[in-house]
Design a protein around this nucleic acid. Structure first.
Ligand SMILES: [Mn+2]
Ligand SMILES: [Mn+2]
Ligand SMILES: [Zn+2]
Ligand SMILES: [Zn+2]
Lengths: 139, 139
DNA sequence: CCGGAGATTAGACAAAGTCCAGATTGCCTA
DNA sequence: TAGGCAATCTGGACTTTGTCTAATCTCCGG
């Protein structure tokens, strides 16, 4: 995966390539996620997008994140019962979650092997396999 | 693991063995979880406990589930962004989650091998490894 | 019987997320 | 250029899950 610049201009192309009409708000939200390459909650996205002056409503942030999810531009990470994280990294990977700090980092899936999973019930298909390693500071 | 009866009477002993003072409400809540051997949300526990007549308050349900968690009597399962599930099965196991129906079932950890996980950051210790297989009806 | 620790409670509160009806935007066509 | 129109955005009410608190209840030991 080649490194690239996540400028606002490049965001427009990225959105179009995922079949998303690039509006001002959508570009800002994509930029917040992709320029940082971090796992962000809706609240954090909201804060980043509205740092200078209020630009984007809460409804739009939530709608847009759901749209990005539907279109496969971002991924949802469910590790904290109190909020969902959105992940600009859609390549197959797992997560390391530091329960005290809430810090979430990626584990490349290529280095990890999972075997022995049971067969799926008939007519079912795997949507994804989430592996979360929960860690904390040693006491 | 030998099969056993999860009668209310046996719940008292189970609670005591986990260093929990067995009160009426705690016995009812434990019974709701253990007699069913299912993953239940706080809301579902609340509903089961209060079927006949209102017996237990919301605060007590939440307090008690947290107490059970602290004492290691139950486990928390985070798969759905909208609610936490409580799991009476504390033996090492993974989960299969049917995203459409919300149905959650166990995968015995003994049949599954996970290898290649990276070393932990220094001073960190693993609290748990959650593996969730998300499946849906084939379209 | 009394005191007090532990447990329970109602209900106010908070945070995350959803929903809706009205306003705005950006095009397309006449 | 002036509508017309579909897509988008918005404030704010609303819902759901979970937390908190201060008052009350329970039960046991002295
Ligand atoms: Mn993509
Ligand atoms: Mn146990
Ligand atoms: Zn990630
Ligand atoms: Zn389970």
């Amino acid at each position: 995966m080649a490194r690239m610049d996540y400028t606002r201009d490049n965001m427009a192309g990225l959105l179009r390539s995922h079949d998303i009409n690039p509006t001002h708000q959508r570009i800002e939200i994509a930029h917040a996620l992709f320029s940082r390459q971090e796992h962000l909650s809706a609240d954090q996205v909201m804060a980043f997008v509205n740092t200078r002056h209020s630009e984007t409503s809460k409804a739009t942030v939530y709608n847009t994140l759901k749209l990005f999810l539907d279109k496969g531009l971002v991924r949802e990470v469910i590790v904290d019962p109190s909020k969902v994280f959105y992940d600009p990294n859609t390549s197959p990977h797992h997560h390391l979650y530091e329960v005290d700090s809430g810090k979430l980092s990626d584990i490349d899936a290529r280095s990890v092997q999972i075997s022995g999973l049971p067969q799926l019930p008939d007519g079912m298909v795997t949507e994804g396999i989430d592996l979360i390693v929960r860690v904390r500071r040693q006491r």
